[in-house]
Design a protein around this nucleic acid. Sequence first.
DNA 1: CATGAATGAGCCTTCATTCAT
DNA 2: CATGAATGAAGGCTCATTCAT
Lengths: 194, 194, 194, 194
Amino acid sequence: MDLKNKIAEAAEHVLLTNGLAKTTTKEIARAAGCSEGSLYNHFRNKEDIFLYVLRGQLKNLMGTLTSLQSLAGKETVRNNLEQVALSALEDFSNSMSLICSIFSEPDILLRHREGFTLRNEGPHRANEAVDIYLLKEKQQGRIREEMDTRAVADLLLGSCFQHAFQMNFLGNVESHEERIDFVNRVLNTLFPGG
Amino acid sequence: MDLKNKIAEAAEHVLLTNGLAKTTTKEIARAAGCSEGSLYNHFRNKEDIFLYVLRGQLKNLMGTLTSLQSLAGKETVRNNLEQVALSALEDFSNSMSLICSIFSEPDILLRHREGFTLRNEGPHRANEAVDIYLLKEKQQGRIREEMDTRAVADLLLGSCFQHAFQMNFLGNVESHEERIDFVNRVLNTLFPGG
Amino acid sequence: MDLKNKIAEAAEHVLLTNGLAKTTTKEIARAAGCSEGSLYNHFRNKEDIFLYVLRGQLKNLMGTLTSLQSLAGKETVRNNLEQVALSALEDFSNSMSLICSIFSEPDILLRHREGFTLRNEGPHRANEAVDIYLLKEKQQGRIREEMDTRAVADLLLGSCFQHAFQMNFLGNVESHEERIDFVNRVLNTLFPGG
Amino acid sequence: MDLKNKIAEAAEHVLLTNGLAKTTTKEIARAAGCSEGSLYNHFRNKEDIFLYVLRGQLKNLMGTLTSLQSLAGKETVRNNLEQVALSALEDFSNSMSLICSIFSEPDILLRHREGFTLRNEGPHRANEAVDIYLLKEKQQGRIREEMDTRAVADLLLGSCFQHAFQMNFLGNVESHEERIDFVNRVLNTLFPGG
DNA sequence: CATGAATGAGCCTTCATTCAT
DNA sequence: CATGAATGAAGGCTCATTCAT
């Protein structure tokens, strides 16, 4: 791995461990095993390191969501959504503190926003992706015609998002089983028939 | 108003304007119209100012939810939930950046956690409160016996929470009508019959 | 006791406990059981409090030394000097940290100096007093004619002073017996015959 | 000279000029011709700078005393002690205000104590060294068998110490001749025969 | 005389960034 | 490209002193 990504990984680790406010260039350099000066050979400044790390977040979730599109018509809808929800729960949990940190630095938030507007990315894309998947299933007649697919997507991912937020906020770590439980109760409510 | 609350209000304003990272004692003092030294006649340190402001945020949300309890049996369930959802959407929106900022300072998060654990508060109490309200309605036979009330609460508040998060994140400001739209689509999906 | 002396005693206590550098007006007021503002009704400023306390140091020793003068011709010289040396050892020990502290604030040292120059006081007066006493004894023929009385005074008080300094510096606390031992060895050397 | 020692020398100068209480990092940096930030590239904090300077003071004194050991048997005892006393007088005089300052900051005193306890140093070692020297001379029969060597050491260095203290305290600066006078009167008294 | 909130100057320290090697 | 000493701006906080009550 090249030094640039080594630095990014080190930065991510420090960010998750110490929080954005206590993530100093000295700490990042130490964690990356290089000098502070080296950071500036690969990034313009500290802000850029953070934005680079930020862009890497939710990558897993987005992967799950693109592969979700091709699942339309396969397995059961319920099963597919369960996988998505679990993936979301995990990724939200891992990235939560990093993504939330951004609110402490409006300048960075602005730059980050501009960045993903350009690349047509962003956290709202996740809900959109689930919506699109559900529309495909509707076309195939696997879900009721009158279902508001966007609302379902918002309810499903929204509850996962808030759940992950609260677990992080409370300092709780959930087991996989607990997550499955949560997802099932939520899906049972959204799809009463099963 | 005494200087303590003047300082707290000033701090809240600066926090929402500049973000936690750029909220300096100098800035707070300027906004409060007092000297920096005065801050320390009313708070032990800067962290305590932030925690004080933070605690105020939670209070708004909890106020809405305690008043919800007395609504059980009155109006329609649907109507009551709409009011709650709209209130939540507004409160979440106002507090989001402040509450999220806390993730950038794990030390503060820890202290905040200890604080509301002691006072039996916390963001999770919101979902609990909606759950309790729904249980009351169930006892009165106004909602189906087999409904998983906790799951409904998690879905409703979760979707509002994430929605508020994304609006803040994207820098969008919603009108009251847009919020009503969102809430209705979500409630229609949760209560298909109306 | 009037408040002025209550403050002075409190200040002395804080000075001996926390050291000059950490002796704040807030601490003094707390120890004196009054408000910070009250300090300024009895002293012009903090420096004056310190000077007032300082002037009270070595009072015991100076008392011993004035009463020493009237002992010329009574008891044995050796016995009288032992009492003086023990008194010096004790007073030096009690006042050492306070008196030494003054070197950290040349301004105060200067003012203190001017003060005791005016009043014809000062630490060197102690040696002078022993010298005078010895001269009286010499007049009465109780010590050898050729003895350099000032040198004896300097040796005796000097060794006591340094001893007290070192005990304070090392953080050792001596028993009365240990002090008697020290004084006797020193006196035995100065007056070989006894 | 590297910057670390440049800073230490500057600090020593400021300490001797302004006193510990008014020795600020800004002043040290100015005297060292570097930025305040640079201080922290070479010392962990201001306290460490002071301890470093302090340790240097003791070194001078100890140097004098180790070289004394090799003089046993050479020249005359009286002559050797005169040299030691003069050296001590000078070293004490130079270091007095610095060493005394430490009493104004008990925390620093504690750390300094721990430091020299570890390294088996300390101000009391000086008296010990003179004692050891005298014991050697006694073994060679150059001083009386019944002499209490430790007491002699305490008397000699004690009187020099207090003398240096008083000169500093009174703001007097002695000429070399005056010092020689003082030392001779003291030595004549300790060694009546010459 | 007593009070204690308000003050503001000044202190120590941190930290992102630069640059000569 | 790598380094790490040097920088200097800025931050949080302390504290002696004042003054209206």
